[in-house]
Amino acid sequence: MITANPAPEAGTEARTGSSPVRAVTRRKKRQWLPYLLLLPVVVAELLIHIIPMLIGVGMSFLELTQFYIRNWTAAPAAGVGNYRFVLQFDEASGKALLHSFWTTVQFTVIVLALSWLLAMAAAIWTQHAFRGRGLVRTVFLVPYALPVFASVITWSFMLQRDNGMVNHVLVDQLGVTDERPFWLIGDNSFWALIVVEVWRLWPFAFLALTAGMSSIPAEQYEAAAIDGAGVLRSVRWVTLPNLRSVNQVLLLVLFLWTFNEFTVPYTFFGKSAPEQADLISMHIYQNSFVTWNFGTGSAMSVLLLLFLLAVTAVYLLLTRKKDVDA
């Protein structure tokens, strides 16, 4: 389970300090206190998360079209009609949803692989001190620190066909092609979006991997060196095994972020993404606010959530089983 601090089961001996006796008395006397402290967040979670989510699930069973959004109690029940509608893969809307889903899957896999590889390489290169390491690490954080909308809008300027930097380099300076390619529409838009997303995401992976590597005991590398291991072998036999739990969480977090990505495509394409780069969050958003059919929009959101939960559950089961085997 992904918790920052694996707690003992709630029923077992409580330990709030190094003195168990005092902790127990405190526990008995003050048992109401933790609940009181949690109360504001629990109320807020209920109001902003739990209740809206339940209402969202409810909405997916309603015929919640533009006539009923302002008065949703009057919306007629749709049963599973919304789900049946969005999953009609032989109809245009179902086809578009399936296409968007596969686009998102491919996008996520490629972004994850590239971000992880860049981050891993950078983390290995900066693992041992050298002159300028602090500066390099700070530079790597810049993409992560910039507000997404500001940096992504810059990328969209760089990738303009006629006055952008990328085509200036490719066509005018290097002469790779004669024809100026489009980057914000057509097949290229998928790859352009990947570059921007990787640019934005890999620093976070770098942070996590660097933190993970800093806790690997130096003796392990010394032992590997005595056994005659070079750089690559010590990465393979010391670094990677030690990063196992970091990677387990990191990949899951990166997966969920990338799969749900909205801000980057929305800013990059300016509200309407081309079909080739139609990520699922954008797809649901555009569908909901173009057709104003929140019933089908909610049905798609619920399906997305179920998919993410299923992937997460399977992933956690598989990775934990491996931990037991290892």
Partner: peptide, 18 residues
């Protein structure tokens, strides 16, 4: 924290309007 934002956006929109 990991749930898609769009999942909350539609219901919150409807709740606010109503």
């Amino acid at each position: 924290q990991m749930f898609p934002g769009i999942l909350f956006l539609l219901p919150l929109f409807v709740i606010f309007v109503n």
